[in-house]
Design a protein around this nucleic acid. Sequence first.
RNA 1: GCUCGUGUAGUGUAGUUCGGUCCAUCAUGACGGACUCUCGAUCCGUCGACCCGGGUUCAAAUCCCGGCACGAGCACCA
Length: 506
Amino acid sequence: MAQKNGVEAVREALAATNPEALERQKQQKRVGLKPLPNATEGEVVLRFAPNPNGPLTIGHSRGVVINSEFASIYSGKVVLRYDDTDTRVKPPLPEAYDWIEKEYEWLAGRPADIIIRASERMPIYLEYAKRMLEGGFGYVCRCTAAEFKTLRDNSHVCPCRARSVEENIADWVSMNDGDIEEGEAVVRVITDLELPNPALRDWPALRIQHTPHPMVGDEYKVWPLLDFQSAIEDHLQGVTHIVRGKDLMDSTRKQTLLYEHFGWTYPETLYWGRVKVHEFGGFSTSGMRADIADGKFEGWGDSRLPTIAALSRRGFKSQAIRDFWMDLGLTQKDISISMQTIESFNSSVIDSDCERRSFVRNPRNLSLNTNDLPLPETLQIPRHPDGEIKGSRQWLLSDKLVIEEEDSAAQIRLKDFADVSINKKDAIVESLEKRGNRAIVHWLPVNQGRIARLTTPSGDGFRIDDGLIENVDLVEGAIVQLERVGFARIESIPENGPVELLFLHR
RNA sequence: GCUCGUGUAGUGUAGUUCGGUCCAUCAUGACGGACUCUCGAUCCGUCGACCCGGGUUCAAAUCCCGGCACGAGCACCA
């Protein structure tokens, strides 16, 4: 119509039939999370359930941020639950429980409302397993994994299903007594074998593990798998909404089947997609754990690792990580993002309260030739160029100074000081006023500097820049912006030896 | 292979429920400029997208059908 009769004709037609369409606002980007389905203010219970086989990674931080944000929107609660019911494949790391608790609090800005460890609640899960067997909707399967897979893939009934409740209970007791070896029995949930997704058919709920648990020892011989433990616990904690990765979609379906057996209603469930960061690839906790053991990394806080510990150590603020995830929102799309994006959020958070310092890499020594011009004895340089931080740093001028070798040019401007020309080992002052468009470089009077070393994660290793840092109010742990270099964290200021600087980002 | 999910600029993201000034939002990025005694910050501008093909309709990013691509699950891991 618009083509034939013009836009006005469309307007008129719409005015007659659908006036609202004309008043539509210009598009705007929705900010914040979409509302949770079926959520009641004050009654929302969410959960964040990591495996404590290592500290939290960037990947986990999405779960912390999204769940805690929803909780805050609805004045709800978040249950921090340690899913530590695997003693062998991904065994828990005892220190990780405390780490995760602290990292959760750091990321969310407040502690989790409830903290529970699955391994401490084993009697409950075992009791529910027994009820399942007694109720006839679960059975002990003595097939090997391979045998069962063949049956399952062909929708054939496992012969173990035909056994009586009494036989099942007898096996169950033997399993728990440790009389059946690992791999020789498993408890399954009875489902419809015609389910289109083979993964759901008679799925395994508990298996035998004789390896001692790092936290509770060898008290239990039968351990629940994630889908069983998680399902029971979500119900017990009154979880109303589950927000998790979409790799767990099949878990939702399995757990829903179990809920139906028990007569419970499954929580509302939302998902996010897989995330990769260009610089890191995926975030495998087990992989990192192995690499650390192999000595490839210095520890969980190694600045090359995508752990929260490393990020925080380098100087990323939790606010930036929250802003980042909130900007992404909750989508099921698999994405691959760049650290640059997170860095940009971090810059916005830290720039206005980071003091500036001069750090001269690869220093070239020069003598200051005053050229008979009257020079001040000291220089006053702002701590922050935009006055976000009041006050100035004071430099005592001396007759020796350094610039970066790479900045060597015939004529340069020593930032906040003077135009000089370089002649062999001399820096000859030409003017205190800035004239022309010569390059402005950062520099340092030699006696104002202190030996320092800047470490930058680079590929599999590190890049080290030795240099001189401005020795004014250096505070261990502080993040400063090294002029023309980038943000860095002051790692340590030893009595003797170089100040250690860890590069953050530009 | 089977099951499930997802496709909007380089990267992310809004809009899709309920079709309508949507020549499609915002951020980040790249490029250019202004400002600034940092290569930072700030400001201005430019670039750049509805997976493909049909269909319904006055009108499709949005609804329908069919493809294609990508991802995940198919563990006695979480």
